[in-house]
Amino acid sequence: MTTEQRDDSARNTVFGEVADLYDAVRRDYPAELVSEVLRYADPGDRGAVEIGAGTGKATVAFAERGVPIVCVEPDPRMAELLRRKTAGYPGVRIEQAGFESWERDGRTFGLLFAATAWHWVPEEVRWDLAYAALAPGGAVALFWNHHGVMDPEMHAGLAEIDARYELTFTPHTMAGWNMSDTIEPPDGDESVWSSQEALMRGRFTDLRDLRFKTPVHYPTKRYIDYLTSISAYRIMSAEARAAVQAEVAALLDAHGGGIEMVTRSDLLLARVV
């Protein structure tokens, strides 16, 4: 089945259509991850710049630790919610722009971080921009939340639905992971950075990969709300989105009214030479 989709040229700003829902259903990042970033980067009074801050799912966690942050966010609807959430943190400044068009005005930072947002910055410019934004010895921290479905039968059923609707990059892509070893390097990967090394060569060093895992249960309705916040579903027509979500809901209800998943938070760290 082929589903009608809107033009996804602005796919990185479709989340603003459901900014409040996005903020409510998206997973936070582990406190241990934030601690690892700050232990590695130690930005001090040089502060941090966050790329694609969204509604502040990561921003608040760093602001609570006293880190001054300049938040760069392209979508005005996400930025407005971010302003409300960070109103109590005087060290947070919000600047509405995409990273590639952001006016840095000569400022440099001790830390540049991006939470499930780095892939939206054009690959051909992002490392040049990151290098320019960092003070000597400054650090890059990139992290993502991935989901893995624990029940193999449910995973197969969801994959079948995805295939019928030609959906890719959904939370159903991966099966669940063993929960042993909460923090570890990526399994079997020489380095998650390997595909980026040519762009980073001579400018970044001390590359590190860390991984955190958290079990999570979604009741059916909350999971459908979560899917509504995913770009693969946002760019579908309303009719197609409703149809696929009805099928997913029926599958979850047939398996007890929810889904067991593991959230895998991957953290990539590097330092300016």
Results as ranks from 00 to 15, higher is better:
T86N: 05
R201G: 09
P122C: 09
P43C: 02
H146M: 11
Y223I: 02
T228R: 15
L167G: 03
P43I: 03
A135I: 05
A240S: 15
H146R: 14
I259W: 05
S180F: 07
A24M: 09
T220N: 08
M1Q: 13
K221L: 11
A132S: 14
G44C: 00
N12S: 15
E73L: 11
W177Y: 11
V70K: 04
T205E: 14
D162I: 00
A238Y: 02
R126L: 02
R46E: 09
A243Y: 04
V37E: 03
M1W: 10
V67P: 05
P136Q: 06
A270F: 00
Q96H: 01
W193V: 01
V244G: 08
G16E: 11
L82V: 00
I259G: 04
V125C: 13
K57M: 10
A135M: 08
Y22G: 09
A232C: 02
A10R: 15
A250T: 07
A58G: 14
E124M: 09
I224F: 07
P215A: 09
N145R: 06
F15D: 05
Y131W: 13
M150V: 11
A130F: 07
G148K: 05
V14D: 06
D206I: 03
L134S: 08
T55I: 07
A79S: 14
P43M: 03
T205V: 12
N12A: 15
D23I: 02
L134F: 07
R264Y: 03
R271Y: 08
R208H: 11
T228S: 15
E95Y: 01
A133P: 04
L134G: 05
I183K: 14
A61E: 11
D151W: 01
I94W: 08
M179H: 09
V34F: 02
E64N: 07
Y89T: 01
M154S: 03
R27I: 08
F15T: 05
V149E: 03
T263M: 14
A133C: 01
A117W: 02
V248N: 09
D105E: 13
G188S: 06
Y22S: 13
P215T: 00
G188A: 12
A163M: 10
E95N: 02
D189R: 14
A159W: 06
A159H: 07
D28M: 09
V244P: 08
G202C: 08
W177V: 13
A175P: 01
V149I: 15
D189L: 13
A254C: 10
G258R: 13
S265Y: 11
G106M: 07
E73A: 09
R104T: 02
A115P: 03
R234S: 13
V149K: 05
A53K: 13
V70C: 11
Q245Y: 03
D42S: 13
E160R: 15
A87F: 07
G106T: 00
S231D: 09
P122I: 02
I69N: 09
A175Q: 10
M174V: 05
V216E: 14
M261P: 00
R126V: 02
D181A: 15
V140M: 14
T214G: 10
A117F: 06
